[in-house]
Write a protein that binds this DNA or RNA. Structure first.
Lengths: 158, 158
DNA sequence: TATTGTTATACTCTATAACTATA
DNA sequence: TATAGTTATAGAGTATAACAATA
């Protein structure tokens, strides 16, 4: 039952939802899959993103961190408060410029982050399990390639 | 520069962002790519989703339509108002039960929807252009396969 | 005067509750 | 009384504006 014409190309690509529709649905589903794992570790999605963006080597300024994870600088303040209170990150004024905060992971922060990520990766692996290895590899390779492209390239502003 | 250990599998899958992170970013970028096209046709994203869900064969009740596109029934009322005023959809009380509305595309609605979708597909094609045909085909096939899976399957609730 | 971090305010999107008209 | 559709209200999430500390 063909519902409407497709003016494109091969039959294998005909009659599919728009790329954006598929990506958004999958993004939401995979996010929903992550949340219970994160909650089990006492992490919100933003907290997890922050931990992933940090390292033992300090990041200079909260603004820089916010920009790196595409968040508003006011958005992450509460998140940093919580992570600091729990001893998962260090947040100290830079001696050379007391306005800026130096942000880094504590060992406990790294451990928690890696544990959470391991749980998430496990779920992902289960989802991709049933795919033939060659297809899975190609899929992930293309996905990474697309993901790594600059924003203007993806949006077609180029 | 390996930032952290990966306890997984092949090297081709090592050191990548979480699946959800990649999907969400790509979903947002592809959505951003669609918006100018939709705007050029005077359509919001919701209006476009509604048009895609309709057909010449009437859909019975706005609730059913809302459920089909995973929207709240109150969410789409303004959208339907606008589409009806512009003559893109028909919305008439069902004679057999005057509480429910019968919703269907008008020829102009179908034309506009198909035009918008053609523009969107064109952008998508440009994005996938540079991929080797075999890889592109595999990527789209796996993406469709994942997209078509039930929600519980994707979230790992199963 | 400019900038970092913070707090207070406003805005957008969405869902919930309350209403009407039919049944 | 129950349901489809509508309107009004409230909530979550986010961004914008205003402020204090430091440069």
């Amino acid at each position: 039952m063909i519902r409407r014409e497709v003016t494109e190309e091969a039959s294998s690509e005909a009659e599919r939802p728009d790329l954006a529709a598929m990506m958004v649905r999958l993004g939401r589903a995979l996010t929903a899959a992550e949340l219970p794992v994160l909650r089990a570790h006492g992490l919100s999605m933003w907290a997890y993103v922050v931990l992933l963006a940090l390292d033992e080597v300090p990041v200079r300024s909260q603004s820089a961190l916010a920009e790196a994870i595409h968040a508003d600088k006011t958005r992450i303040i509460g998140v940093l408060d919580d992570l600091q209170e729990r001893g998962l990150i260090r947040r100290s004024p830079d001696p050379s410029d007391r306005r800026v905060r130096l942000l880094s992971l504590t060992p406990e922060g790294r451990r928690l982050r890696d544990e959470a990520q391991a749980g998430i990766r496990q779920r992902e692996a289960r989802l991709l399990d049933h795919l033939p290895p060659a297809e899975r590899a190609t899929f992930l390779q293309v996905l990474r390639d697309l993901h790594d492209r600059p924003w203007q390239d993806l949006t077609g502003e180029a």
